[in-house]
């Protein structure tokens, strides 16, 4: 990870710490995307849209102009009409806004900030390719939801929702995934940006359900470097950010065991994802966002 940071500096990529100090999210997203696109030889997402028409049950955020009133008359339910020209690609961004995501080691961005910027960059990229992108934030409960859209104004709404998404509290990843499964159209892309500290098996099961519904799930596992190395010294009172209690311990005493525990957990998550055909990407918040995006685009394109 240190090597990646060094590489970022050497290639002129924006340092994640510096990124957070730049202007609006749009500017930052644009900068990241341009930095990433500049490194691509071709667009990884061109020519992949599917041409068909269908109805989708109305959900909050859908344009009411597209409600099919005839269907409403027949079924007493709201359906929104989907047009061929706007269904090239539907991508959903699921942002973990739990308390644990508010953690950032000294000098670096919080995981939530990093996730928001990464999501903004992805949204910017999708919209500028003409694809639709939606957003779902969640913590203990599913939070704000923005259905997919591909207009510039939609992007502004998405940025606005991202900037105001930090909430704290616990995590219920499975509830968020099930919400998405209910609301989103199958065969969509689902980007999950989370630190995955909700270790309940239900979360992974929900991800599997999503996958079974023909979603292409890409998991960005955000990890702060301190969470990997436990670099602290001296007697420390560790407290959880989601009400897990506290522990007074000398980090030296348990560092090795901790590393073993957490890396074992990460390995098990990666293994589960692999088995469920979920694309797993562990992202250190110390890594330049451009390289994360570039890496994703490069390898995702090759995969397709």
């Amino acid at each position: 990870m240190r090597r990646e940071e060094d590489n970022a500096r050497s290639t002129g990529l924006v340092d994640p710490g510096l990124l957070t100090s730049l202007g609006s999210l749009r500017v930052r997203a644009k900068q990241v995307v341009e930095g990433a696109i500049a490194g691509l030889h071709r667009s990884a997402l061109t020519g992949v849209s599917v041409e068909f028409t269908e109805y989708k049950e109305y959900s909050a955020g859908d344009d009411i102009r597209h409600i099919d009133w005839k269907s409403f008359a027949r079924t007493d339910r709201y359906f929104v009409k989907q047009f061929e020209d706007e269904t090239n690609l539907r991508a959903y961004l699921l942002i973990d806004c739990s308390g644990s995501m508010l953690y950032g080691s000294e000098g670096g961005p919080t995981k939530h900030t990093y996730a928001a910027h990464l999501a903004a960059a992805l949204a910017y990229l999708f919209v500028h390719q003409g694809d639709a992108v939606g957003l779902l934030t969640f913590s203990k409960e599913p939070g704000g939801y923005l259905p997919p859209g591909s207009r510039q104004s939609h992007l502004e709404d998405l940025f606005s929702l991202l900037e105001n998404s930090a909430s704290g509290g616990g995590t219920d990843l499975s509830a968020a995934l099930m919400t998405l499964a209910e609301r989103a159209r199958p065969r969509s892309l689902a980007f999950l940006l989370s630190d995955l500290l909700d270790t309940s098996p239900a979360a992974m099961n929900a991800a599997k359900v999503l996958r079974q519904r023909r979603f292409e799930v890409i998991l960005f596992h955000l990890v702060d470097p301190a969470e990997l190395t436990l670099p602290f010294e001296g007697l420390t009172l560790f407290t959880g950010l989601e009400g897990e209690g506290g522990l007074v311990v000398d980090p030296d005493d348990i560092r090795d065991q901790y590393k073993k525990e957490i890396q074992g957990y990460f390995a098990s998550v990666e293994r589960e994802c692999h088995h469920s055909d979920i694309e797993y990407r562990r992202v250190s918040t110390a890594m330049p966002m451009e390289s994360v995006l570039l890496d994703f685009l490069f390898w995702h394109g090759r995969k397709r």
Binding site: G99, D195, E227, L230, T236, F238, T239, L241, L247, I254
Partner: peptide, 18 residues
């Protein structure tokens, strides 16, 4: 008493290690 207070998300793994 003078232990540094430090929020740390993966505290569950610390507790398990401890």
């Amino acid at each position: 008493k003078r232990a540094v207070r430090r929020p740390f998300p993966p505290i569950e793994f610390l507790l398990r290690s401890n």
